[in-house]
Every structure is written in C-alpha cells, then in structure tokens.
Design a binder for these strands. Sequence first.
DNA 1: GGCGACTACCTAGCGACTCTAGGTACTCAG
DNA 2: CTGAGTACCTAGAGTCGCTAGGTAGTCGCC
Lengths: 113, 113
Amino acid sequence: MSEQAAPSPQLSRGEFGLLILGLLGRREMYGYEIVAELRRSSEGAIDLPEGTVYPALRRLERDGLIGGHWVDVVGGAPRRRYYRLTEQGERALAAGREDWLRFKSAADAVLGS
Amino acid sequence: MSEQAAPSPQLSRGEFGLLILGLLGRREMYGYEIVAELRRSSEGAIDLPEGTVYPALRRLERDGLIGGHWVDVVGGAPRRRYYRLTEQGERALAAGREDWLRFKSAADAVLGS
DNA sequence: GGCGACTACCTAGCGACTCTAGGTACTCAG
DNA sequence: CTGAGTACCTAGAGTCGCTAGGTAGTCGCC
C-alpha cells in the first residue's frame, strides 16, 4: 500500500464525499441532481446545501476519483456537468464502504444503541 | 428558539464529541482513559490521538455538556481530570443518538450496503 | 411588462474540527 | 541513565461545511 496517501485514516473527513461517491456508483449524475437525490434517497435526513456539494465535487475531481463532462440540454435549460466514477473512484468507494461498516459498528458499540 | 445554537444540524460536525459523550454516559472517565477505552471498545477501529481528544473535552466542557474535576492519585502518578455528563450533556447525548440513527440509515440507503 | 420561481452552475470567507508535533513532569524497570 | 509508561497540555496547519451571496436563462402568471 501507500502508493498514495490514505484519504480517510479516520473517516469523518470526507464523509460527504463518500456519500457522493455512493450515488455516482449507481449512475452518472450532475451536481444539482445529486443534491436532490441525496435528499430523496435519505428521506430528508441528509440535505446538503449547494455550497457543500459543488466544492466537494471539485475536490473529488481534483483528486481523480470522479470525472466530469459538460452536457448541453435542449430547450434553453442551463448546461449540466455530469460526473462518473473513475477506476480510482471505484476503488475508493469500495474502501470507503468498508471503512463505513467498521466505523458504524464501532460507533454503535460506543453509543450502545 | 436560539436559547442556544443547535450543535448538529447535519451531524458530521462534532461526531467525535458525540462518541465521547457516549462513553461518559456509561461512567466517569478521564482523558487518557477515554483514548484507550475508545480504542478498546471499538476494537481498534477508532483510534483518536490525544491532540484530538483533549481539545474536544475542553469544548464539551466549555459548552456545558460535561463537567470535570481534578483527582489526585496516590503513588505519585499524574493527577487526572475526570469528566461526567451534565444534565444538558445527557440531553445532547440522547439527541445525538437519534441523529446518529437517522444518519446511519440514510447513509446505508445511499451507500447501499 | 414585470415579478417570482425554478434550473444549474459558481465562489469568497468564516468558523469549526482533526491531527501533527511537539512540550511538561513524574515514576519505575533494567 | 535511558527508555517506557502515565497524564496532561498547546500552537499551528490543513480541511471541510455552510452561509450568503452572484450569474444567467426559462417559464408561468397577473
């Protein structure tokens, strides 16, 4: 290992980034859609403002975990930037899922629910 | 409202603080012990450095969620600062547990585990 | 023709948190 | 006398989340 710095030694950092990766693991999506889809598929429990999501998408792209491309929409609607996982992003998602499972049961043990 | 700022609109902020509250909900503990106990009861999954825990304890005390008192130890060992939950801390822990449950199932839905 | 609502993107800057990397001070074993 | 253990602490850097704006176009409504 150590071909690259581990991004989440402790989870907690980049947690929302992981959720975005989770969504993009299902299908290609654009920022505005991610905000809505996150709210919908979490039944309102996770409601990230745009000012959180757009910078997160830029970080994920900067770090090579996702790739984006512009798509023009017919009918004068604003163009969209669609993102999909890169191969590195797939691996990060898989690792992140494991981290999440570990963290979840650890936190459950501590919180005693 | 605004008798006091809501501390966790989205979880994620003060998550480790919540874990500390969870431990202190079981019994009085001191900082150094919390580090070890967190590592032990999470089976190594959560391993916070002292530089994270001590400032977190100070914040929690500053915010009135925990109260600390010094205890001298016989035998020349360093004195310890034991912390226990205040009433406000108990309430915060209960609310935090609910937040955690909501966040957990939301994240599970998104990550699809 | 003007107003609000919606889609879709973006950024600067504040505040908050985590962690690194030290430091203090004392005890005990070898 | 060196190292390991206990137990506390802090400054500073880096990162992240969110507020609060802004741009720009379309659409429906009165």
